[in-house]
Write a protein that binds this DNA or RNA. Structure first.
Lengths: 137, 137
DNA sequence: GGCAATCGGAACGAACCAGTCCGATTAACA
DNA sequence: TGTTAATCGGACTGGTTCGTTCCGATTGCC
């Protein structure tokens, strides 16, 4: 019931990126210095976020990343899913997975999807725009 | 953004216990067979749930566990916290922890407590009574 | 007083996460 | 046009946590 550190870092970095506006070119090194996230880790995260379609990447000199959507269009759930994979409280919530030995006569499963939706809804309700409006120290 | 297997098992076992009523004496072996959870794991979970105050334990022959509160009084959040520890999305949400190097000028932190509360609220809104009313196969 | 049954804590193995490093690709410059 | 420099992208290693199992401590029954 906790975010991984990587997801945590990703949120911080995306918020920093959003403060630069949606048209700005940002390098991993730049955001790393700005947020305090170690550079190699930042690179890894940016790549993963780009792979999920939240950022577009440009290689070579002067390259970097750019927000693909507006800050208002990106939710906390999007960022977390990009880094951690699909938000599913239990293994049986993931479609296509049927590893759970208890599944055949599990009395709880029918209710879990509702719980899942509630948690996911809470995360989707928070946009990146809200997060980036942090009280500037 | 996922429960550990132990927490998952704990929910299933507590739901099974609730179906027996709040006054029933239940051994770990009994619930293990009923739910399909491996016995040693079930023992460990019952112990942890008892330590959190959700169950009372009785040792010796004919001993076992008993629900301390009614099923209506126990929420999903209670069970998860008993097994996984406090529900805190990020390390900085836990009181007394200040390990995060980004903390001093983190622009996101002020919003995270709100997110934390929303997720926790979603879990507290689901009572054990609801879960145990599973559609009987 | 001995026996059986049950809880409680300690130890082991495996999987995942976090972090680091090096190669591939691209644009800018001479 | 060749070279250089800067950046992304994927592969690898170490550490931590999770999950499981086993054995000892305690209690009630015969």
């Amino acid at each position: 019931m906790r975010l991984t550190s990587l997801a945590d870092y990703a949120v911080v970095m995306m918020a920093a990126a959003a403060r630069h506006g949606s048209g700005a070119r940002l390098s991993a090194a730049m955001l790393a210095e700005e947020t305090g996230v170690p550079l190699p880790t930042a690179q890894k995260l940016m790549g993963r976020l780009a792979g999920a379609g939240l950022l577009v990447s440009a290689r070579g000199t002067g390259g970097g990343f750019e927000l693909l959507r507006g800050a208002q269009e990106i939710s906390l759930a999007d960022i977390i899913e990009a880094v951690e994979g699909p938000i599913a409280m239990t293994a049986c919530s993931e479609t296509g997975r049927h590893d759970c030995q208890l599944e055949k006569n599990c009395q709880v499963k029918p209710h879990l999807s509702a719980v899942n939706g509630a948690v996911r809804g809470a995360l989707q309700g928070v946009s990146l725009a809200t997060l980036s409006q942090g009280a500037v120290k």
